[in-house]
Protein backbone atom coordinates (compact mmCIF):
# COMPACT_ATOMS: atom_id res chain seq x y z
CA UNK A 1 0.00 0.00 0.00
CA UNK A 2 2.69 2.47 1.00
CA UNK A 3 4.75 1.22 -1.91
CA UNK A 4 1.88 1.88 -4.30
CA UNK A 5 1.20 5.38 -2.94
CA UNK A 6 4.88 6.28 -3.21
CA UNK A 7 5.01 4.93 -6.76
CA UNK A 8 1.90 6.84 -7.81
CA UNK A 9 3.01 10.14 -6.31
CA UNK A 10 6.44 9.90 -7.92
CA UNK A 11 4.81 9.13 -11.27
CA UNK A 12 2.37 12.04 -10.90
CA UNK A 13 5.26 14.39 -10.12
CA UNK A 14 7.16 13.11 -13.16
CA UNK A 15 4.19 13.70 -15.44
CA UNK A 16 3.68 17.22 -14.06
CA UNK A 17 7.33 18.04 -14.69
CA UNK A 18 7.35 16.71 -18.26
CA UNK A 19 3.80 17.69 -19.21
CA UNK A 20 3.65 15.37 -22.22
CA UNK A 21 2.09 12.02 -23.11
CA UNK A 22 4.95 10.85 -25.29
CA UNK A 23 5.44 7.05 -24.87
CA UNK A 24 9.12 7.57 -24.01
CA UNK A 25 8.21 9.94 -21.19
CA UNK A 26 5.56 7.52 -19.89
CA UNK A 27 7.99 4.58 -20.08
CA UNK A 28 10.94 6.22 -18.34
CA UNK A 29 8.51 7.70 -15.79
CA UNK A 30 7.10 4.26 -15.00
CA UNK A 31 10.63 2.84 -14.69
CA UNK A 32 11.82 5.51 -12.26
CA UNK A 33 8.57 5.43 -10.28
CA UNK A 34 9.08 1.67 -9.80
CA UNK A 35 12.71 2.19 -8.84
CA UNK A 36 11.99 4.96 -6.33
CA UNK A 37 8.91 3.17 -4.97
CA UNK A 38 10.92 0.02 -4.34
CA UNK A 39 13.88 1.80 -2.78
CA UNK A 40 12.05 4.40 -0.70
CA UNK A 41 8.51 3.06 -0.23
CA UNK A 42 9.32 2.23 3.40
CA UNK A 43 9.90 5.83 4.46
CA UNK A 44 6.64 7.08 2.97
CA UNK A 45 4.32 8.39 5.73
CA UNK A 46 2.16 5.86 7.59
CA UNK A 47 -1.56 6.23 8.17
CA UNK A 48 -2.59 7.51 4.78
CA UNK A 49 -6.25 7.58 5.80
CA UNK A 50 -5.46 10.96 7.38
CA UNK A 51 -5.29 12.36 3.86
CA UNK A 52 -9.00 11.72 3.40
CA UNK A 53 -10.12 13.83 6.37
CA UNK A 54 -11.42 17.18 5.02
CA UNK A 55 -10.93 18.92 8.38
CA UNK A 56 -7.17 18.41 8.11
CA UNK A 57 -7.19 20.03 4.68
CA UNK A 58 -9.26 22.92 6.02
CA UNK A 59 -6.76 23.57 8.79
CA UNK A 60 -3.93 23.28 6.27
CA UNK A 61 -5.62 26.01 4.23
CA UNK A 62 -5.76 28.19 7.37
CA UNK A 63 -2.17 27.34 8.25
CA UNK A 64 -0.63 28.26 4.89
CA UNK A 65 -1.60 31.99 4.78
CA UNK A 66 -0.73 32.33 8.48
CA UNK A 67 2.64 30.73 7.83
CA UNK A 68 3.21 32.96 4.81
CA UNK A 69 2.47 36.07 6.91
CA UNK A 70 4.92 34.92 9.62
CA UNK A 71 7.47 34.23 6.91
CA UNK A 72 7.19 37.74 5.45
CA UNK A 73 7.53 39.28 8.92
CA UNK A 74 10.60 37.12 9.55
CA UNK A 75 12.14 38.37 6.36
CA UNK A 76 11.53 42.03 7.11
CA UNK A 77 12.91 41.50 10.63
CA UNK A 78 16.13 39.90 9.40
CA UNK A 79 16.45 42.42 6.57
CA UNK A 80 16.18 45.31 9.07
CA UNK A 81 18.83 43.79 11.33
CA UNK A 82 21.13 43.23 8.39
CA UNK A 83 20.97 46.76 6.99
CA UNK A 84 20.99 48.45 10.42
CA UNK A 85 24.43 50.04 10.93
CA UNK A 86 25.01 48.34 14.32
CA UNK A 87 23.63 44.90 13.36
CA UNK A 88 21.50 44.63 16.55
CA UNK A 89 21.58 40.93 17.41
CA UNK A 90 21.65 38.97 20.64
CA UNK A 91 22.10 35.40 19.44
CA UNK A 92 22.28 32.08 21.25
CA UNK A 93 20.92 28.55 21.30
CA UNK A 94 17.89 27.91 23.51
CA UNK A 95 16.03 24.73 24.34
CA UNK A 96 12.23 24.55 24.23
CA UNK A 97 9.80 21.67 24.64
CA UNK A 98 7.02 20.94 22.21
CA UNK A 99 3.80 19.12 22.98
CA UNK A 100 3.53 17.67 19.48
CA UNK A 101 4.25 13.93 19.24
CA UNK A 102 3.96 12.83 15.60
CA UNK A 103 7.15 12.76 13.51
CA UNK A 104 5.47 14.54 10.62
CA UNK A 105 4.07 17.27 12.88
CA UNK A 106 7.47 17.81 14.51
CA UNK A 107 9.15 17.99 11.11
CA UNK A 108 6.75 20.68 9.97
CA UNK A 109 7.08 22.53 13.27
CA UNK A 110 10.87 22.53 12.92
CA UNK A 111 10.68 23.78 9.33
CA UNK A 112 8.15 26.47 10.22
CA UNK A 113 10.35 27.64 13.10
CA UNK A 114 13.33 27.84 10.78
CA UNK A 115 11.46 30.05 8.33
CA UNK A 116 9.97 32.45 10.90
CA UNK A 117 11.27 35.37 12.97
CA UNK A 118 14.91 34.99 13.94
CA UNK A 119 14.82 31.32 14.87
CA UNK A 120 16.50 28.27 13.36
CA UNK A 121 16.08 24.67 14.49
CA UNK A 122 19.47 23.08 15.16
CA UNK A 123 18.40 19.69 16.51
CA UNK A 124 15.42 17.71 17.79
CA UNK A 125 15.72 15.19 20.61
CA UNK A 126 12.36 13.62 21.44
CA UNK A 127 10.23 16.54 22.63
CA UNK A 128 13.16 18.94 22.99
CA UNK A 129 13.90 21.42 20.24
CA UNK A 130 17.25 23.21 20.15
CA UNK A 131 16.72 26.60 18.53
CA UNK A 132 19.29 29.13 17.40
CA UNK A 133 17.65 32.48 18.14
CA UNK A 134 19.07 35.64 16.60
CA UNK A 135 17.63 37.96 19.26
CA UNK A 136 16.89 36.36 22.64
CA UNK A 137 14.52 38.77 24.37
CA UNK A 138 13.43 36.91 27.49
CA UNK A 139 14.81 34.49 30.10
CA UNK A 140 11.43 33.00 30.94
CA UNK A 141 11.12 29.48 29.57
CA UNK A 142 7.33 29.62 29.18
CA UNK A 143 7.36 32.87 27.24
CA UNK A 144 10.10 31.51 25.03
CA UNK A 145 8.10 28.40 24.23
CA UNK A 146 5.04 30.51 23.53
CA UNK A 147 6.98 32.83 21.27
CA UNK A 148 8.82 30.15 19.31
CA UNK A 149 6.35 27.32 18.81
CA UNK A 150 3.09 28.35 20.52
CA UNK A 151 1.81 29.99 17.37
CA UNK A 152 2.05 26.88 15.22
CA UNK A 153 1.33 24.05 17.61
CA UNK A 154 -2.51 24.19 17.75
CA UNK A 155 -2.88 24.27 13.97
CA UNK A 156 -0.21 21.63 13.30
CA UNK A 157 -1.79 19.32 15.88
CA UNK A 158 -5.09 19.52 14.04
CA UNK A 159 -3.46 18.94 10.68
CA UNK A 160 -1.11 16.06 11.46
CA UNK A 161 -2.20 14.31 14.66
Amino acid sequence: MKWLMCLLSVFALWMLLFWSLDPWVLGTGAFFALLVGTLLGDIFPDRLEKLLDPRRWLFLMIYLPFFFWCCVRANLDVALRVIHPDVPIRPGIVKVRTTLRGEMAKTFLANSITLTPGTLTVDIDGQDLYIHWININTDDVRRRTEEICGRFEPLLRRIFE
Binding site: C71, V72, A79, V87, I89, L120, H132
Partner: peptide, 20 residues
Protein backbone atom coordinates in the same frame (compact mmCIF):
# COMPACT_ATOMS: atom_id res chain seq x y z
CA UNK B 1 28.45 39.06 4.70
CA UNK B 2 27.52 41.23 7.69
CA UNK B 3 26.40 38.75 10.35
CA UNK B 4 29.11 37.32 12.62
CA UNK B 5 29.01 33.50 12.66
CA UNK B 6 27.85 30.43 10.75
CA UNK B 7 24.58 30.16 12.66
CA UNK B 8 23.49 33.78 12.19
CA UNK B 9 24.55 33.69 8.57
CA UNK B 10 22.50 30.56 8.02
CA UNK B 11 19.51 32.47 9.39
CA UNK B 12 19.84 35.21 6.81
CA UNK B 13 20.59 32.73 4.07
CA UNK B 14 17.54 30.54 4.79
CA UNK B 15 14.87 33.10 5.53
CA UNK B 16 15.54 35.77 2.94
CA UNK B 17 16.68 33.42 0.22
CA UNK B 18 13.76 31.01 0.67
CA UNK B 19 11.12 33.71 0.46
CA UNK B 20 12.98 35.65 -2.25
Amino acid sequence: IRLPDVYNRAQAATKCVTLG
